[in-house]
């Protein structure tokens, strides 16, 4: 509703407004002028994690990954639920036989049931992956947060130590150490992987902590007289968690691949442990005549890693502050 009620608004001597530039005042009350800054009171409060969860669960990829992960964890925990055949009871007379009732994938060279071995192989991968990831997250977060938060010589020393471990490629170091170990178990394999796998997470944590500690809420906590350790635990670490969680999901997949690689080379888990890596290695000999022996454990392995990696993608999208800034 334009109104032009000013003869010459600029005062004497100024030119008259030109067409399209007349004085215009919009009709009053065009929506919520009074509430310049009101708090919404309907909707439930959304914390950071709740918000992330809402975002994740709306994506199909999240559910695909979740189903795969649940399945793999179930396989690892209760393999007996899925098969009644013992993976270690083998009958040489069944060597390389095709699928039969009760043995849907057939038999390998040793006459072991491939389906059962594929089911039971999940445990080795999941246990080593979870153990190694847990160790890496605990140790890497500790090193990274101390270096990043306390700075000064802590940072200098710890960063240099991180660099040293970072300079030795993971698989190479694992091969060297494991080859001289005589009794290898899931725990020792995980420990060795963790020993050379932590620098990455330490670097990520250090970087995040260094940026989080410059936030004003940290300064505010300092002015309250809060101790440094308490600030680190209560304010800095929770705010640094997102990238650590994202990396942990990816690392889990990488450790599973590394374990399989080592078992494939014969220096991972001992031969009597049923593992996908070991079975792929065993199937390698018959690759041209019976490639399916190799493909079942390889498929299991790939699906598992894919599940964790996809989850990592979804989690990153949900937690990444850059992606969240609409």
């Amino acid at each position: 509703m334009p109104e032009n009620r000013y003869e010459n608004p600029g005062g004497p001597g100024t030119p008259m407004p030109r067409p399209g530039q007349e004085r215009y005042v919009a009709a009053v009350d065009e929506g919520g002028l009074g509430a310049v800054d009101a708090v919404k009171t309907d909707e439930a409060p959304t914390s950071f994690w709740r918000d992330a969860w809402h975002q994740m669960r709306s994506r199909p990829l999240f559910w695909v990954a979740a189903v795969i992960m649940t399945l793999v964890v179930l396989l690892a925990a209760f393999p007996g639920l899925f098969t009644s055949v013992d993976p270690r009871t083998c009958n040489l007379s069944m060597s390389l036989q095709g699928p039969q009732p009760g043995h849907p994938f057939g038999f390998d060279r040793q006459g072991c049931d491939i389906y059962s071995r594929t089911i039971y192989g999940a445990r080795a991968s999941v246990v080593v992956g979870l153990l190694a990831t847990t160790m890496v997250v605990v140790f890497g977060t500790l090193m990274g947060s101390v270096a990043g938060y306390y700075g000064k010589w802590f940072d200098t020393v710890l960063s240099r130590v991180t660099d040293i471990f970072f300079a030795i490629p993971l698989v190479l170091a694992a091969i060297v150490i494991l080859s001289i170990m005589t009794n290898r178990t899931s725990f020792t394999v995980a420990l060795v992987l963790a020993l050379f796998g932590w620098p990455q997470i330490a670097r990520i944590t250090r970087g995040t902590v260094m940026s989080v500690k410059n936030n004003e809420f940290v300064t505010a906590a300092k002015s309250l007289g809060m101790g440094r350790g308490r600030i680190l635990v209560r304010h800095v670490l929770p705010n640094s968690a997102a990238p650590i969680i994202v990396y942990a999901t990816v690392a889990l997949g990488q450790f599973i691949v590394a374990e399989a690689t080592l078992s494939f080379l014969g220096i991972g888990l001992p031969p009597w442990t049923v593992s996908w890596g070991g079975d792929i290695s065993a199937g390698q000999e018959a690759i041209r005549t019976a490639p399916e022996i190799l493909l079942y454990p390889a498929g299991g392995l790939a699906l598992t890693v894919l599940g964790f990696m996809m989850m990592g993608d979804v989690v990153r999208d949900a937690l990444d502050p850059k992606a969240r800034k609409r």
Binding site: Y6, P9, G10, P17, Q21, R23, V25, G31, G32
Partner: peptide
């Protein structure tokens, strides 16, 4: 304001005598 023009005109006139709340 909120995606709409609430008032327009010669700069000094608006400053001297704003009309819209």
């Amino acid at each position: 304001f909120k995606g709409k023009v609430v008032e327009s005109g010669p700069a000094r006139a608006i400053l001297a005598d704003p009309q819209h709340p």
